[in-house]
Nucleic acid binder design. Sequence first.
DNA 1: TCTGCAAATTGACAATGTCAATATTTGCTT
DNA 2: AAGCAAATATTGACATTGTCAATTTGCAGA
Lengths: 202, 202
Amino acid sequence: MTKRGRATYHHGDLRQALFTSAVALLDSAGIAGLTIRAVAHAAGVSHAAPVNHFADRRALLTALATDFFGDIQTLAVEKMADAPAGEARLVAFAEAMIDYALAHPNRFRLLWRRDLLDDADTGLNTAMDSLYDRLLVELQAGGWPLRFDVETYAIGLWSLVHGYLSMRLDGNLVAAHDARTGEPRHRAIIAAFLASVAPPPT
Amino acid sequence: MTKRGRATYHHGDLRQALFTSAVALLDSAGIAGLTIRAVAHAAGVSHAAPVNHFADRRALLTALATDFFGDIQTLAVEKMADAPAGEARLVAFAEAMIDYALAHPNRFRLLWRRDLLDDADTGLNTAMDSLYDRLLVELQAGGWPLRFDVETYAIGLWSLVHGYLSMRLDGNLVAAHDARTGEPRHRAIIAAFLASVAPPPT
DNA sequence: TCTGCAAATTGACAATGTCAATATTTGCTT
DNA sequence: AAGCAAATATTGACATTGTCAATTTGCAGA
């Protein structure tokens, strides 16, 4: 019998419990609030117990980030499947990122904190590349007459979404609509970016 | 006579010395390496001396960020003045950001770490808004037939540059040229974004 | 001169990540 | 079934860091 309701000395599935607690803490207290000790406490174990399941804080954060990339990818695939081929699919991709980021700002922030993540982790890199490839593939499959590189569009769109969200999450930008077209801002931005694909009807 | 060559007990211009040491440390050791104690040591004073000039670490980082925004603005104004009116001015703006970010990656990273900066600091907010306004004004002055909001273009360009640099500094992107047009990637991206202003010659 | 304020030092504390030593449990081997 | 090794958890410790309180030092103005 140990302190907190746990019946056995060994937890049973501490790794999972730590992971769950970590997500909850991240959501509620931010990256700074996600300390190893707080996670351990939330899971009802001693402050040094996590070392058996995550080598260090970096490893835990890396595991989280990898998972979040997977979540976004799942969401993106869903949204893109529902959209007609073409520009709408790219908007769907962007909206998956935006929806996820606005729903879970701290999770999204973590994804870009490379200083806190394990650069060498193949799982993380694969998850990220895999998401990027979704975008690339969609652009390649579009069959549109691109004025630039496919990569220019992929990098551009990725950058656009990333930057837009960075501003939104920093509070420097509020949800709004383009005054001229009435579209949501992020769609207007994407449309502007893709204008060299399909020029406006003069 | 105190420990390190300093002739007087009172430093004389410690604030400036701390600031200089802080920039050097930031450049060489990153944000994480920029500790109050390390800065104090580099300036040759005791670990608690900085409190007289910067209330806490956040205040120091805020002062730095404010200064860096000013540097970028200076650079942007220079570059834009050298460019012919129109799209080239927007490219110049972007290039000012990109040049600065690549030359001083850690300084640039700090600018977006709102979790480490003082949100309420008017100096910081003014410096940032002022830079953004440069971009906005240039777009407004262009006299081009915009398909979208001026703000859509401003937010879009800002986001584009921000996201692009985030990738570059994270090592997820290498300097390259658009394979189709031969332009540097960042120019291709900007050109694509502004295509809805001046459609390509079919 | 001397007195008060600004600036710097010293020493302390709490939070955190991490490690070593120890304790407990589980499951495999015989 | 018994015993043992590996896995897992606890306890205690330490270094780093930001911050604060108490004290010391020196400068400038009355």
